[in-house]
């Protein structure tokens, strides 16, 4: 589905992502974890095309997309959400989702402007689909409100609905549970599992370890821009390098001592 090979990104005086390779298998939830500053968001920005890599390649569904602009990647079926909320605040919730549908609205622009029958039919179908997506993520009641008025957790849900509107094959979620309460987080987890059931592939960045361990089929662990481990949830949980990265060398040694 997605293959990242020897991907690197340097900023002046800093290697944010250093020679990272991993592959996401179709129809799985794959998580990228690591301490703050490990390079997860930089990696997301390179995969979605907002940031050119300094080296390495990105392949999506068998084709090299390293040089493609973001909108072309979206058309190929790559959707994403952002860590810092980026809904279109002045638009209504419904309009946000319709905007996400942009690459799938195929009517030529003169027809769209002149509201030809085909364009109107497409808009109606789009509206129905947008309503359904809002219902799916649980914010259908807010459809006509300006997106900026929504509560934090609801804005996160809106971002997911907006990303789903383009019928992505792969969805990149950057900390979707951040700022959500435990009930909301659990509901989000159910939603993501449901989406995977329906055939979606998800690449997830998240700090809530309970959430990550519950959902992930596979995890890639980053620290200081490098990949330090990869495996299933159980493997990663017991991996000493991972524990060390998260808790620091001293605590890791102490834990190892206590276990021995």
């Amino acid at each position: 589905m997605l293959t990242v090979e020897t991907l690197s990104r340097t900023f002046t005086g800093l290697i944010a992502v250093d020679d990272v390779s991993f592959a996401v298998t179709p129809n799985t939830i794959h998580s990228l974890i690591g301490p703050n500053g490990a390079g997860k968001t930089t990696l997301f920005n390179m995969i979605s095309g907002l940031l050119p890599p300094s080296g390495g390649t990105i392949a999506f569904q068998g084709g090299d997309i390293t040089a493609l602009p973001p909108h072309r990647r979206a058309r190929l079926g790559l959707g994403r959400t952002f860590q810092n909320l980026r809904v279109f605040g002045e638009m209504t919730v419904l309009e946000n989702v319709l905007t996400g549908m942009h690459p799938r609205l195929g009517v030529a622009w003169p027809l769209a402007v002149l509201r030809s029958p085909a364009a109107r039919a497409e808009e109606r179908a789009g509206l129905a689909k947008a309503q359904a997506l809002l219902a799916k993520v649980g914010i259908a009641d807010h459809a006509r409100r300006p997106a900026a008025d929504l509560a934090y957790g609801d804005q996160r849900r809106l971002e997911i609905a907006r990303a789903l509107a383009s019928d992505p094959a792969l969805l990149l979620l950057d900390e979707p549970a951040a700022g959500m309460n435990p009930t909301e987080t659990a509901a989000l987890g159910d939603l993501l599992l449901e989406l995977r059931q329906e055939g979606l592939t998800i690449l997830l960045v998240e700090h809530d370890m309970g959430f990550v361990m519950r959902l992930s089929d596979r995890l890639t662990v980053l620290n200081f821009g490098r990949k330090i481990a990869e495996g299933g949830p159980a493997e990663i949980r017991d991996d000493p390098t991972v524990i060390e990265a998260y808790l620091g060398t001293k605590v890791a040694r102490k834990l190892a001592g206590a276990a021995a």
Binding site: G49, P69, H71, A74, E90, M91, T99, G100, H102, S166
Partner: peptide, 13 residues
Amino acid sequence: EDEAAARVMGIDV
């Protein structure tokens, strides 16, 4: 409102 978000939404900015 947000150029980067528009780009990843598939809009040819």
